[in-house]
Design a protein around this nucleic acid. Sequence first.
DNA 1: CGGTACTTTGAGAATCGTCAAAGATAGTGG
DNA 2: CCACTATCTTTGACGATTCTCAAAGTACCG
Lengths: 253, 253
Amino acid sequence: MDTKSSYANLGIAESTGDDCKFCEVRACGMCSALSENELSRLHKMTQFRHYRAGEQIFCDDEPNHHFAAITSGIVKLSKILPDGRQQTIGLCFPPDFIGRAYKAKNSYYANAVTAVTVCTFPHNKFETFLLETPTLEHKLFELTLDQLDEARDWMLMLGRKTAIEKVATFLIMVATRIDKNSQLLDVAGSSQKFELQLTRTEIADFLGLTIETVSRQFSLLKQKGLIQIENQRFVEVLDMLALKEVAGMVDAI
Amino acid sequence: MDTKSSYANLGIAESTGDDCKFCEVRACGMCSALSENELSRLHKMTQFRHYRAGEQIFCDDEPNHHFAAITSGIVKLSKILPDGRQQTIGLCFPPDFIGRAYKAKNSYYANAVTAVTVCTFPHNKFETFLLETPTLEHKLFELTLDQLDEARDWMLMLGRKTAIEKVATFLIMVATRIDKNSQLLDVAGSSQKFELQLTRTEIADFLGLTIETVSRQFSLLKQKGLIQIENQRFVEVLDMLALKEVAGMVDAI
DNA sequence: CGGTACTTTGAGAATCGTCAAAGATAGTGG
DNA sequence: CCACTATCTTTGACGATTCTCAAAGTACCG
């Protein structure tokens, strides 16, 4: 079983032809809006792709070649200023889709944070299909509304929270998001222990901070006894309520 | 003619019955997706409302009573942290719509920035109508995608730009936005002169800054000879290219 | 074991926020 | 028409937070 090493170099996997049956996001992703008939029509234009951690999925200002539905892994969306400053503007988990409908160009980068697998669809064909399939458009609309809600929460964080509040907010978000997606087993029952899938640099780009400030806030949270960190990547939240207070989510008494 | 004073106290105007014929956003707003037939069906559930500058349109955590399509004026969307810090997360101009589809509660505040007129639709009825009218859902989807693009540009600004870059970016945004919407006549031909519709506090909440910092950056831009300000509200951009450089939108040479 | 990449920690500097006071502007009433 | 007030804006001084630069510490990989 070395399928992993075989597709890792390619970015494109062999379509086995009946992957949808085993798809982890068949029930919740955009495909859940499709009948068997429609699904098989979509399947004909589908190409599976795999990306390794760090690989670019698409590029700012690049013509919009295809849409993609994430079936596993984490994708980050980011923007870069002319002088190189970077800001992450979205984290996508299964069953999110990536790509801008009804526009010829992307206005941001998409990169694999972890190993990622996606179903991709050619831009033109997919848009035609989308316009012919209102249930699918409805589903994408709902997913987009969720993304907008998320973006707006994030804006509050970027604009008004302090460094330690940002880091605490980030930890809570990852903890709940991982839980919701059951991406990672929460070791030891319901304890909040998880692997940080992002590097310090990625966290900093996410929070609008520098890597050093992020590191310092982690140390502060450790000092306060709210979290523990093993091997710089495995975080355990020891006091979720106190963490939420630090995150500015509840009124401190 | 004191219709103004009569509705100013109420927030609800008398429907004249054929307002759509004279609607300024009939051609570009969500109603452009509707046939005459569908429009008259929607019209039956429509209630016109007027708000004065500053009035609250809806509230965080409030049940989603109705959707609204803006026909004139500017609406701001904002979030507030438990301790009172505020962040504006959206500015809506005609023909934007406000209200969260497919969710029972709002997660932010909506306030009139200027005098505002909207068409409102009861939440439940409108959602039913929306599900039955794919062309309308398509239109709302497109408007939502635009809002998401905007939110993401904004995130880059909030997370990575300096105070002066933020203020410059804001001025450019307002200048182009006002132009696009032909909200305000640009006095003296194509010169970039316009009225700031927002107070300094509102600008600060928009940019994630304090009012003092915003004021200082305005003064700096005046010193640099890039803008002029009359009566604290009327701004003239003297050198748009240089302003874009300060905004971090093009690479300084 | 040694090298590379990532993370943590420290010291000093820059930016932005806080507090305070003065300056503008608009609206009110004499 | 002119004070007078209330509100908004500008400016200044100072302080806190965050960034920058630099060096040491830690994990990972061959």
